[in-house]
Nucleic acid binder design. Structure first.
Length: 272
DNA sequence: ACGCCCTCCTGTTGGC
DNA sequence: TGCCAACAGGAGGGCG
């Protein structure tokens, strides 16, 4: 999926087109997403004005003047584009948020792992959001915090940083990339990390996510931003999806293995 | 609480 | 060429 940089790029891309606009209609073509979309949802949002386009973890949050919030997750293969509302639908276009500007936010998601929820009341109280860890750019996510979060944990550090109860927004690409930058082997037990390694990892996570946001995220297959353009961070990846290719730092071949049913990439020369 | 495994779904790729 | 297994950016849920 879209990880934090891709979701944030999408948020920034749609924001100027959606904030201040009234929702003419939510056309739901395919309610069978990660969770079945409430059939009554379109009726609840029609006519409302969008006051804010926010993000929490990998969820997009469209706040409405009714006080409610429309929550969209892009899943593994989803994208959200701004298009003229009369643009012909393509395969896997599941919903259109039609705006009074004549444009629409169109959600496309081949694998249908995305989701759409209507939140009445405080979004932070929703079960899917309530237990989420701090954002990586939140000052609360610092070396002290990750130090405490790693103590006593036998799980591999790569799996730990992908755990949304530890920190949000870090998915499979950026977990490998952050560990490379922090010079830490992905299979290390979290509890075995030294204090300075934990501090490096916090900085690496922040750095790699920030750099990816700057260039519109990473496009491997499906992902495009709100304008339909891919993200360009793929060119900056050190290890992800580069098995056997020379490490950009030490020239040793990049290694690959499967960890918790997810591909992990790393460099034996650079990472300890 | 923790760690591991499975699941949802479609599309693409690589091996035989 | 066809067939089939493996794998793909997420993450909730169930189990021991």
């Amino acid at each position: 999926m879209p990880e934090l940089p891709e979701v944030e790029t999408t948020r920034r891309g749609v924001e100027p087109h959606v904030v201040g606009r009234r929702i003419v209609e939510l056309a739901l073509h395919e309610p069978r997403l990660r969770w079945p979309v409430d059939r009554a949802l379109p009726g609840r949002v029609a006519g409302a004005r969008v006051t804010r386009a926010g993000r929490r973890a990998k969820y997009l949050l469209f706040e409405l003047d009714s006080g409610a919030t429309l929550m969209l997750h892009l899943g593994m293969s989803g994208s959200l584009r701004v298009l003229p509302a009369d643009t012909p639908r393509r395969l896997h276009d599941h919903l259109d948020l039609v705006l009074d500007s004549g444009q629409a936010l169109r959600f496309n998601d081949p694998r249908r792992f995305g989701s759409l929820h209507f939140l009445d009341g405080d979004p932070a109280a929703h079960p899917l959001l309530a237990k989420l860890a701090p954002e990586p750019f939140d000052p609360a996510f610092d070396a002290d915090y990750l130090w405490r979060a790693t103590r006593g944990r036998r799980v591999a550090i790569k799996q730990l940083v992908m755990n949304s109860h530890v920190v949000v927004g870090v998915g499979n690409i950026y977990a490998s990339e952050a560990l490379f930058r922090a010079r830490i082997r992905p299979r290390r037990q979290a509890r075995g990390l030294k204090r300075d390694e934990v501090a490096r990892l916090v900085e690496s996570i922040r750095e790699v996510l920030a750099m990816a946001v700057e260039v519109g995220g990473t496009t491997l297959r499906d992902y495009v931003g709100a304008d339909g353009n891919p993200g360009y961070f793929r060119q900056k990846l050190y290890v992800y999806e580069r098995p056997g290719e020379p490490c950009r730092v030490c020239a040793q071949p990049v290694r690959h293995f499967v960890q918790g049913q997810r591909s992990t990439y790393w460099c034996a020369g650079c990472q300890r």
